[in-house]
């Protein structure tokens, strides 16, 4: 199934022309199993948080990972930036295998790949000034930019729309949205090629959320940054990402370009997810696909297709045979025995 992904069709990046060719980041069959203890002498079970996920991101491209809690999107993000070690699978960055990068290799990787977290307050040290927080990646990596660290930090603050004179203030003096801007400035300090953003706006108020999304879009365009944007909010992802991967219970169930995913998705789960979103432009709850029950536990996922227990199209084959990821008629790559066809009404 890895092959099908690499030659994924219809995924030309939207936006300005960019050199096609080698993808920046390639993830192949990535898994993360967390052992859990149960029973008297620690008989172990496995939480299959991520279970064989593959995708690739080109330079300057924005890939969204969406799904409900427990789908493994956050775990995937942490494995990408090597905050977590993968159980198996391979991560390639610029042609180099970084799955087990250590020491110097890892340090180099951290320059090219940065992460932004959900909670802008918890991820900033309250005892450090903003200047120190943003300068930290430069100092840790022993980088002395032309004009000095302070000048670079002030440039970064200005870039993310903060007043450079607030260099000496502390995180608690800023509002939630501004704190997230500090997080973004820190992520940009080393001029990374790709940023993993884990729910970067979900803790923010609506009006502030839009400010941060616009900022990220602007930076993405100006600096030609690639993004892996992890979020549960499908509307936010639609406004930020060119390609979208939909995850369910540790599996990628569908991946494709934005328009197809949002207009004519093949996987029933993608359709259900989209139709469940309460949208400001839609009054009432008419025409909604109603999924029954909750997401099953990743400790003991259903056999065959993991979505089958909640799927209205499920048949016997879905329980016995896991559907492979293949190109569907709509152009996306999806894992379903009975894919949907046609546009969402």
């Amino acid at each position: 199934m890895t092959e099908t992904l690499v030659q994924e069709p219809g995924t030309e990046p939207v936006g300005p022309s960019r050199p096609a060719g080698e993808p920046l980041l390639v993830v192949e069959d990535l898994t993360k199993h967390f052992p859990v203890r149960s029973g008297m002498f620690g008989k172990t079970g496995l939480v299959r948080a991520v279970d064989g996920v593959s995708f690739s991101v080109r330079a300057g491209e924005t890939l969204g990972l969406v799904g409900e809690s427990g789908c493994g999107k956050t775990t995937t993000g942490r494995m990408l930036v090597r905050l977590l070690d993968s159980t198996s699978g391979k991560i390639t960055f610029e042609g180099k295998d970084i799955t087990h990068a250590k020491g110097g290799g890892l340090r180099q990787l951290r320059q090219d790949m940065q992460i932004i977290f959900q909670d802008p307050y918890a991820s900033l040290n309250p005892r450090h000034t903003v200047g120190r927080i943003v300068a930290m990646p430069l100092q840790v990596n022993g980088i002395n930019p032309p004009g000095g660290v302070k000048k670079r930090v002030q440039e970064l603050l200005e870039l993310v729309g903060l007043n450079p004179e607030h260099y000496n203030r502390y995180p608690h003096e800023f509002s939630g949205g501004q704190r997230q801007r500090i997080g973004v400035a820190r992520a940009l300090a080393l001029r990374p090629k790709i940023i993993v953003a884990d729910e970067p706006v979900s803790a923010l108020d609506v009006s502030i959320q839009a400010q941060v999304i616009n900022l990220l879009r602007e930076l993405q365009r100006e600096l030609d940054l690639a993004f892996v944007f992890i979020a549960h909010d499908l509307a936010v992802v639609r406004h930020f990402c060119q390609r979208i991967g939909v995850m369910y219970l540790g599996k990628m169930v569908e991946i494709g370009d934005r328009e197809t995913i949002y207009e004519r998705p093949a996987h029933p789960y993608t359709r259900a997810l989209l139709s469940a979103v309460p949208d400001v432009t839609k009054m009432g709850a008419s025409g909604r696909i109603r999924l029954e029950g909750d997401v099953p536990t990743p400790l003991n996922p259903p056999s065959g297709c993991r979505f089958r227990t909640r799927c209205w199209k499920a048949q016997e084959v879905c329980a016995s045979e896991e559907p492979p990821l293949t190109v569907k008629s709509n152009g996306t790559v999806a894992a379903c025995h009975f894919p949907e066809d046609g546009a969402i009404k």
Binding site: E68, S69, H232, L234, A272, L273, S275, A276, V277, P278, A285, R288, R290, L291, E292, D294, V295, R310
Partner: peptide
Amino acid sequence: DVTVQAQILD
């Protein structure tokens, strides 16, 4: 989650 949200609102 959104699918659960939809259930609860219904």
